[in-house]
Design a protein around this nucleic acid. Structure first.
Lengths: 166, 166
DNA sequence: GGTAAGAAGTTGTATTGACAACTACTGGGT
DNA sequence: ACCCAGTAGTTGTCAATACAACTTCTTACC
């Protein structure tokens, strides 16, 4: 008499569990490596990377927030801290006085450039070098649509780590 | 004259980016669904699920912490809150007075049972039903070793969601 | 059997992030 | 010209979690 509850078979459970635990454990590993070797969080790394890829090394706060999937308050505080460290600079917009453009400074660019090799090394050691081309293909093909579904506004900045590619 | 920096090709970048953004976005989606429909966080859900699967619905705090990948302080506070809500009960160990055994109560079991269908529905809608058997196979095969590498103590409780399976 | 090293669990303190409230500014409608 | 609805960004407040310090208890060793 019990009504039917949706279930998952064993393969589905394995895939789901591995994904959930990856999502739980991966951020801490990225933060730990970047913090230890470069004194920045993974989120700060993404912010700097995103700026570096922008046309003139600068983005409006709102657009930067969208690109790094951040709320405005969070980004405001992180940018404030990056600014006191001299890694970014906040410059008010000319045409619209409400706007703040966040610029990557020379020091910020250098800090990022120093941080990248160690970070890529971790990523390769942890993930990339353990997978063959078919696995990489399936992983990207499976997760990219998922990200699209997860991102409420569908505009996560896939650009953030593009500079890692050749 | 510049020394070589490790790089990733485009396929590697795509796989990596989709994985990082999944890790960033997935936890919020799980919390939002469980909070809205069942009034609990995903972490609380995992704690209750883990207890439910334990032999007698109870685990020692330290073992529970290991199974759900939590620090002791974090778990102590979460269990405290679950106890005030009547979902678990803390019972001191008989042989060792330092030990606390965390027991799932009837109310806790009922709350979990009520929460499961909606959660599984989300998981299927978001991930499982979008992937075919080959993708599920590759996903699990790629991520399970990764979780092993990410878990410093190699004892993450893959049991936590097993009851979702038939 | 007394003591010291260490384990289990809780609590103090600081940081991070979310949501909401606020300030400052813009632009459309009249 | 003025008001008002809406946007950009910051700050207030609170919950969550990490690390460290603490309490209590156990066990190994002499």
């Amino acid at each position: 008499m019990s009504y039917q509850v949706p279930r998952m078979n064993e393969l589905e459970s394995r895939a789901w569990l591995s994904l959930v635990w990856t999502a739980e454990l991966l951020p801490a590993a990225l933060d730990a490596q970047l913090q230890a070797e470069s004194g920045m969080t993974h989120f700060e790394f993404i912010v700097l990377s995103t700026l570096r890829q922008a046309d003139d090394g600068a983005l409006q706060t709102k657009d930067l927030a969208a690109a790094v999937n951040s709320t405005m308050p969070r980004l405001s505080r992180v940018v404030g801290k990056l600014a006191t460290r001299g890694l970014v600079e906040r410059i008010g917009g000319q045409d619209d006085a409400r706007v703040i453009n966040v610029h990557l400074t020379g020091a910020g660019r250098r800090a990022l450039v120093r941080a990248v090799p160690g970070h890529i090394a971790l990523v390769k050691r942890l993930v990339i070098d353990r997978l063959d081309a078919q696995q990489l293909e399936v992983l990207a093909g499976a997760l990219e649509p998922l990200v699209g579904r997860l991102d409420p506004h569908n505009r996560v900045g896939f650009a953030a780590v593009q500079h890692m590619a050749e």
